[in-house]
Design a protein around this nucleic acid. Structure first.
Lengths: 269, 269
DNA sequence: TAGTGGTCTAGACCACTTA
DNA sequence: AAGTGGTCTAGACCACTAG
């Protein structure tokens, strides 16, 4: 929701007491981005040097530097020491998809339910053992959940947790009834780092049944692996997400005034 | 006035006048990240204040500020004005998947070929017209391509371009024979911004045939929409990617020493 | 009121590129 | 040698939060 604020980039800053809500470094970065977007600076062109920008905007070196760093982060420009700052071409590689798109959608939705389908302690088979990096046969807590909204199933989750009677992790997991709680548990106390993978898969019969789609339907499989402070894997699981409800969207290059900045659509009603 | 830069570095820095390749702000950020990772600072804890860090590392306010901004960007800490800097919990939402993972894999691979399956001028149907934001029936250039590596098909691409006899876009497109060229064309001259969407889909018969998989197989569908400087859509297309060759992976939280930072695996041989 | 982070200055020296 | 970006200093004032 980065509000680009007022269109008047007339630097009412600096001198007078009136302090703009938009810091100088942001105002400078946005001004330059606008110029690139409107074709004042073309792709491949060299931008004015830092000294020139400093003079134009009447700020100190650090401030113009900070503005350029922002454009650097956004992937809008590149800098080469000794040469200059240049407008970048559009690059597919710079596209980043944020998982937050998905999680944001339903966090504040009261109609979202997270029923537990089954829970039990099962010995780790070869696959689970390799994922959890434990010996085969190690007792693990196996959970199956459904995430549904307004009664419509959205995700089917399988999760294996290392069983540790001294760790309250499992009990906490069993009591989760909201998506919020579910996501928080993943980010919970003991967790220190995680690895996430997205794949496209064909749903097997049971998953398809729970999700209310025909078997073999395509779905996103979001696999997660969480570790504690010692690097020990404590949780491995997969979310199977109905393909018709999930979509990852992103924008590259300079967002036009009409286009949203980073907002997304995903799985309408 | 302390010497400059190279003052008391707690790490293996400093040395005999030898300048470290790691700037002070990075070294400070990494040191703090290490402490969080090793449990010195726990989730939810308040970090030392900027004044304390400034004293500990013997640097100026701006430098320690910059280090904290890096941790802020990485999603490792949060700051609240007037309160302090705090260690963040793991948050699923912070996960970002980079498309570069996919494109990097084959850019330097000489065995990658991009044969053109068909090319022609066709009137826009309802779907194409809505995507390209042009009237139905508008002539568009329709291209179909295969991206293959060592003879194994990886992606099947469909693309519609606005036909403009004065724009060299189409001719350039037709001469593309490498993946590098293909990706560059997307980022090409006229393009100013793009929108990308990833979905999971079931492959239709013809797509499945070209990709050498059974019909109805799951696949990633990477849809792209590119605009020129005026915001006019000039290209809409979809890449259908074999699910067994594509995977998006990311790491959240503090990467452990053994784990790779942002490197990925995707589609082994 | 005291302490925190947020922003900014007006310089400096450095490493690198180009000629 | 001249010009570029990269880093850093030693302060300053501000906005916000809390007791």
């Amino acid at each position: 929701m980065i509000a680009r604020g007022v269109s008047a980039r007339t630097r009412a800053n600096a001198g007078a007491g009136g302090r703009s809500p938009e810091p100088a470094y942001l105002m400078i970065a946005n001004t330059i981005a606008d110029r690139i977007g409107s074709g004042v600076y073309h792709a491949g062109d060299q931008l004015p040097t830092e000294a020139q920008l400093r003079a134009e905007f009447g700020v100190s070196p650090m401030t113009v530097r900070r503005a350029i760093n922002i454009l650097l982060d956004r992937g809008v420009v590149t800098t080469t020491q000794g040469k200059g700052t240049f407008v970048r071409n559009l690059d597919l590689g710079e596209a980043v998809f944020r998982l937050q798109q998905i999680t944001d959608l339903w966090l504040d939705d009261d109609s979202v339910r997270v029923p537990l389908l089954s829970a039990g302690i099962v010995p780790a088979d070869a696959l689970v053992a390799s994922k959890l990096q434990c010996p085969e046969g190690t007792p693990t807590v196996f959970l199956r959940r459904l995430i549904e909204r307004k009664g419509i199933p959205l995700m089917y989750q399988l999760e294996n947790l290392i069983y540790d009677e001294y760790r309250p992790l499992v009990e906490a997991q069993l009591q989760i009834t909201s998506l919020d709680g579910l996501l928080r548990s993943a980010s919970g106390e003991g967790m220190q780092s995680g690895q996430l993978t997205i794949e496209a898969v064909n749903l097997e019969d049971d998953a398809a049944k729970f999700l209310g789609v025909v078997p073999n339907s395509a779905a996103f499989c979001l696999e997660h692996l969480f570790r504690d402070f010692h690097g020990q894997v404590v949780s491995w699981g997969r979310y199977f997400c109905r393909a018709d409800r999930f979509r990852l969207t992103t924008v590259i290059g300079i967002a036009r005034p009409d286009g949203v900045t980073g907002a997304t659509s995903a799985g309408g009603d």
